[in-house]
C-alpha cells in the first residue's frame, strides 16, 4: 500500500513516531536508570539528564555472583536449545517423511501440548525432578525447558522439512547412503536457515524463562539471571527498591536480545509465522 496525499503522509509519519516512541520509552528508561548514579536516581521530578556512570555495573558484580548467574543462564539456554533442536529436528523429519498410521494425530497431540500452562505442571514436575535428584541442577532445568520448546520447534520444522525436495534423499538412499548420512549431508545443510531460526527463537524463550528456574533452583548452582533480578528486587533500601541495580541487571539481560533482534529480525519473523522464508 502506498499513501499519496501529503496529509496522509503526515498522518503516517505521525503514527510511526508515536509507535516508535511507545516502544522505546521503557527501554530508554531502563538504560538511563542503569547509567544514573544512585544519588541522582531518587529525585522529584525524575532526572532526565543525569551524570552517566558505570559504577552501578561494578556494584552489581560486587553484590551478586553475577558471573555465576550469567554462566547458568547461558548453559540453561544453550542446553535447552541443543536438547530441543536435536530432538525436534529428528521428530520433524520422521513426521514429515515417514507415513505411519496415527502420526498426524500424534503430531497434533504434540503441538497441542503447547497450550498447557507451565504453571499447572510446576507442582508435579517438582516431584519428578526431586525423584530424579535434579532439583537445583542445570540438567533438570534443561530437561523441563527443552521439553517446553519441543512442540513449537517440531511444528515449525515439519513445515520446513516438507519444503526440502525429497528426490535428493531418495537418490542418496538408492546410492547406498544410510539415514544418518542422509540427514547430515543432505537434509541439515538444506535446512540450515530454518534450523538457525528455530534455534534463535528457542534461545529467546529459554533466556527469558523465569518460572522454571525460580521454582526449581535454590542456589548459585542453578539460578539464572531472571531469578537473580527477582532477588535484587527483594533487597530493600531506604528509598524503596534498588532500581539502579535492577535496571543494570535488566540491561545485561536485554542487550543480547536486542543484538539478536537486529541481526536476525528476518529469520525470527519468518520462523514465527513459518510462512515466507525465501
Amino acid at each position: 500500500m502506498k499513501f499519496r496525499s501529503t496529509r496522509n503522509k503526515i498522518l503516517l509519519y505521525f503514527g510511526i513516531a508515536v509507535f516508535v516512541f511507545i516502544i522505546l520509552v521503557p527501554i530508554y528508561w531502563l538504560f538511563l536508570t542503569a547509567l544514573t548514579p544512585r544519588t541522582q536516581l531518587f529525585s522529584v521530578p525524575p532526572n532526565y539528564f543525569p551524570d552517566f556512570t558505570l559504577q552501578n555495573f561494578r556494584n552489581l558484580i560486587d553484590q551478586v555472583p553475577f558471573l555465576a548467574y550469567l554462566t547458568n543462564s547461558i548453559l540453561f539456554a544453550f542446553g535447552a536449545i541443543i536438547l530441543s533442536v536435536i530432538l525436534s529436528f529428528l521428530a520433524a523429519y520422521g513426521f514429515a517423511r515417514i507415513e505411519v498410521p496415527g502420526s498426524n494425530f500424534l503430531l497434533f497431540a504434540l503441538v497441542l501440548t503447547m497450550a498447557i500452562p507451565e504453571i499447572v505442571t510446576v507442582v508435579p514436575l517438582f516431584q519428578v525432578l526431586r525423584n530424579l535428584n535434579m532439583i537445583d541442577t542445570i540438567r533438570g532445568l534443561v530437561m523441563v525447558m527443552g521439553s517446553v520448546l519441543v512442540p513449537f520447534s517440531v511444528w515449525v520444522l515439519v513445515t520446513f522439512v516438507k519444503r526440502v525436495p525429497v528426490e535428493m534423499e531418495e537418490a542418496a538412499i538408492v546410492d547406498g547412503a544410510n539415514l544418518p548420512q542422509v540427514l547430515f549431508y543432505i537434509v541439515i545443510p538444506a535446512m540450515k536457515p530454518s534450523l538457525v531460526t528455530v534455534t534463535i527463537i528457542n534461545f529467546i524463550n529459554a533466556w527469558n524463562n523465569l518460572l522454571y528456574p525460580l521454582v526449581f533452583s535454590s542456589s548459585v548452582r542453578a539460578k539464572t539471571l531472571t531469578v537473580s533480578i527477582t532477588e535484587i528486587f527483594q533487597a530493600r533500601t531506604p528509598y524503596g527498591r534498588p532500581w539502579e541495580l535492577i535496571s543494570t541487571l535488566g540491561v545485561t539481560m536485554v542487550v543480547p536480545m536486542i543484538i539478536l533482534v537486529f541481526v536476525a529480525q528476518r529469520g525470527i519473523v519468518s520462523g514465527l509465522t513459518s510462512g515466507s522464508l525465501d
Partner: peptide, 22 residues
C-alpha cells in the same frame, strides 16, 4: 539469604525437598 519471608520460604522449600540446603 533473601530478606523477605515469602521468597525465602520458596527458595528453601525447593532446596530442602531436593535433599539439599544452601
Amino acid at each position: 539469604r533473601p530478606g523477605s519471608p515469602p521468597e525465602f520460604i520458596s527458595q528453601m522449600t525447593s532446596s530442602i525437598l531436593g535433599g539439599q540446603t544452601p
